[in-house]
Design a protein around this nucleic acid. Sequence first.
DNA 1: TTCAATTTGTACAGTCATTGGACAAATCGG
DNA 2: CCGATTTGTCCAATGACTGTACAAATTGAA
Lengths: 371, 371
Amino acid sequence: MTDTGKSSQQLIKEANMNLVFRLIHKNGAISRADIKKITSLSATTVSSLVEELIGEGFVEECGIKKTKSSGRKAVMLKVKADGGFFAGLDVKKNIIRADLYGLDFTLEKSIERSLSDGESLAMGIMQAIGTLSRNKKIIGVTIGLPGVIDPGTNSLISSTVLAADDVKDIYSILKEAMPDVDVYIKNNSGLIALAEKEFGNHGRADNLISVDINDGVGAGILVDGKIYEGSGMGGEFGHMSVDFGGRKCKCGSYGCLELYASVPEILSLTETSSLGELAEKLSFGQKKKEVLQVTRALAFGINNIVNLLDPEIIVIGGSVITLGEHFLDAIKESFREIALIKDKKIVYSDIKENPVTLGGVRFSFDRMFGF
Amino acid sequence: MTDTGKSSQQLIKEANMNLVFRLIHKNGAISRADIKKITSLSATTVSSLVEELIGEGFVEECGIKKTKSSGRKAVMLKVKADGGFFAGLDVKKNIIRADLYGLDFTLEKSIERSLSDGESLAMGIMQAIGTLSRNKKIIGVTIGLPGVIDPGTNSLISSTVLAADDVKDIYSILKEAMPDVDVYIKNNSGLIALAEKEFGNHGRADNLISVDINDGVGAGILVDGKIYEGSGMGGEFGHMSVDFGGRKCKCGSYGCLELYASVPEILSLTETSSLGELAEKLSFGQKKKEVLQVTRALAFGINNIVNLLDPEIIVIGGSVITLGEHFLDAIKESFREIALIKDKKIVYSDIKENPVTLGGVRFSFDRMFGF
DNA sequence: TTCAATTTGTACAGTCATTGGACAAATCGG
DNA sequence: CCGATTTGTCCAATGACTGTACAAATTGAA
């Protein structure tokens, strides 16, 4: 059943422990008796697992439940916010964003810094984590970056933005510095999708596509609540072709979505110099025809995804959100015209934090507490 | 950990039992000692699980291992081919194909029949299963059909080919007739993909796309070795648009793949009356230009899938296979021209049996013996 | 032929996470 | 103040697994 050295019984215990912890985490405040009812574990087991969780500092009691029912009052349990911290990093070409989150997913600390002259990416990352971890017990680090990462070795295989050599040994350097902390290096798009599922204000969807529109156009794919990776190079939504007779793209294909819907192309097609300017014009009813080219292409791309994967929801994020509801409505309208599944949910992301670091933190959490 | 009434210990036992059985199944002939080494279960546990499997009639001893090593000779174990039978059905508009497979996946019996006048689909299916099951202990039935099925209730939600009313209660009728047999109703595309993974002669890929080209163009998607279903309506590869300025499709969109690459369109674009005729012409170097329209469109579609999902392999099946290697080569050539990931494996299906029933049987198997 | 060495498979006792029942603790309402 | 009710812990029993001991079977060398 297992290749780890653990015996099956230990695995069961671990699974039940995770189950209980996740339940406490999800519910905010919950009693042992409630846990027993929900999990259908025995009262004894719940008690002993909770005792252990308290011993590890992950859970604490937080007062007495107030109800008007008869009987002994229940002692409530909650996650101990400072029982451990997760660091999430969003690495771009020259900028490192690093966020520290508590066990209850409250943002504790944020750093954003660019690389100083001659500083390597690995050093910059180490530095950032060092700053975050001052006086805090970090139990997980996930680094999101644009590129293909081998999930087995955590090493970068390729990236259009980052130099592979810079990144290649980040994992080993980090691991050496903090041998007992779980470190993950992941593609940023997948982390965004995970963040959308967990922290977006649109019902929790286990099959979800997040579309990220900035300088490029990417997609994160969630299957059964988990980040889909395929052979590692998926999510290149920007190079989905919707017009095989169209312009040649730098990827070698023709009529790729990126030629219509990336931010630079949007600005160029609409002859505006910033998204802010375009947003204003849209609100005055201007540039409708030009924007239609963009939204129609996007609608075709999204429809292609929907026909292929039929996710529960499509979440659009990235800087295009500044274009406002007019833009989203235009996408939806084009979509409805051509779609087979017309009522598919298409929404803007409503996450205020950095979705890459937030998704990264959630990823660490899931790895640590079982999913 | 579980919502079933079973205790965790029972779940462990079941998991280990499945592990052992699948190992025996996969290896053909294997000794208890080998199982111990591979699974790292204790010798005692292996012995007791095997004993139980033999008791249930799923496994039998099959002689002594011949080796020249010293020590006591190992008793070999194999799956008892007639320990139980799986029925797989491929339901089309008016034709029911039903195959019976032994526990070791040897084809035991095949039926193909059309519905007689006034006979309902459910009755036809019942009849077919009845014929198959004569003197045979059926332990699983999976019915593959074109349409959207709710995996929870096993009822048809919609189908472009079958009448929903005909199908709606197949599951309950079957269940009533054979209450202790597992019955599944699944979309046919997914079953094809599963069959490709398990029975195709191209390394076992856990992330695989099967493209089925017949009157329509469909896709089956395998993620982590399991059939991907999304909200249920995925796999509509035929309605992926690759040319948003193209012809209007009956689905409401424009330039869908089905308008280029479905068999009727292929024949029309190449002005031939059958795939056989076209195959012959291709082998004489004729119709190259006309076929290029088809293969180029397909290449764009496949490239879109690859960029989005990056599966390990794309397997093309359906009646287009009769067009032979010329056709496949043309697809690959167009693909290489435009692809970002140029070395992606694209192959024809080499499954000789009916992939829908075969995939269905494998599906039953996986459900029964844990995956 | 006989015996040491080796490998296979079973028997038995011990381990450990879980469970159910008994029970103490705590609270409400009459 | 006491019965009813709910919460949470203690304890013995269950059951699946493991390790050790051991019997069975086979090879090869003395």
